[in-house]
Design a binder for these strands. Structure first.
Lengths: 143, 143
DNA sequence: GTTGACCTTCGCCTAGACTCCGGGGTTTAG
DNA sequence: CTAAACCCCGGAGTCTAGGCGAAGGTCAAC
């Protein structure tokens, strides 16, 4: 079986090779398929999944979007917009929402950090826990 | 039954009253007990849990520590240190670790934010998704 | 004395993103 | 030909912090 009888010239991959190429596990590929992030692939007569290597690019897209903080559901939406010709405005709106979310998280964490910094600075770190200013501060924080 | 036959003078609460006083659900109280954050309470003859209101303070401590980003396991450690006379250094070390963790999260989020800001700014938001700079940027990011 | 509010345990459900397992069938290397 | 490596599917398990509900016992009020 040489380079084959399909109209596509791209490499045709089994799930294992695809997974390796994309840097994910086999289960992850099947999982993405179930979640609708990857289309159902063709099958061999034995039922094996067969992929073109455009699928590897799709998985890499998913990985990068994940690194930007998008959830799989959000990524599924991004992919649907690509697949079915959505509008730029929709993509930008998702990006903007994510940005808002991230900004909110950052402020939260900064607020927490400043409290923890104060606590950490207030404690000598010597002796046993009785009268530990950290514990006492937590005990008497506004609820 | 007036204010009672126990050596403690504090109010004795059923789980429902305790939960209400502490601002959590009943299930949460039982869950904290299972997780070792609350000691096993006394029981009435019928098997009802009975708490002194020091327990409410303990739950409030848990809630505040949670707000500072500590996990329940970490809080359990803090409580053990209080209960069994740990050292200030241990408390401070936990605080310091949490601080490091939070700083790491903040830098992560800031990095992501700056990417998303660039992406958002690069997109006109007009027209359909073909050639959307956000999509393209994600497609060609370094993996 | 009976309703309704409260309590008990047990065990399953949630979200997010996988990951592993078991019991098969298939393909490939030697 | 056979053993290793690969693939299939369905389902269960992981982690966090609880939520929910059933089936049944108790307690307080009217």
């Amino acid at each position: 079986m040489a380079n084959n009888n399909q109209s596509k010239t791209s490499a045709r991959l089994t799930i294992g090779r695809l997974a390796k190429q994309a840097g994910v596990g086999i289960d992850t590929v099947r999982f993405y398929e179930r979640r609708g992030l990857l289309p159902e692939p063709e099958r061999t007569m034995a039922g094996y999944r067969v992929y073109g290597d455009d699928t590897a690019a799709r998985i890499l897209f998913i990985r990068r979007a994940k690194r930007l903080g998008f959830t799989l559901d959000e990524i599924a939406t991004l992919l649907r917009l690509q697949d079915h010709g959505g509008k730029k405005a929709e993509v930008r709106s998702l990006t903007q929402h994510k940005l808002d979310e991230i900004n909110a998280k950052i402020s939260d964490l900064k607020r927490i950090r400043s409290v923890l910094q104060d606590l950490s600075a207030s404690c000598s770190g010597k002796g046993n826990v009785d009268g530990c200013p950290i514990i006492e501060a937590i005990s008497s924080m506004p609820t």
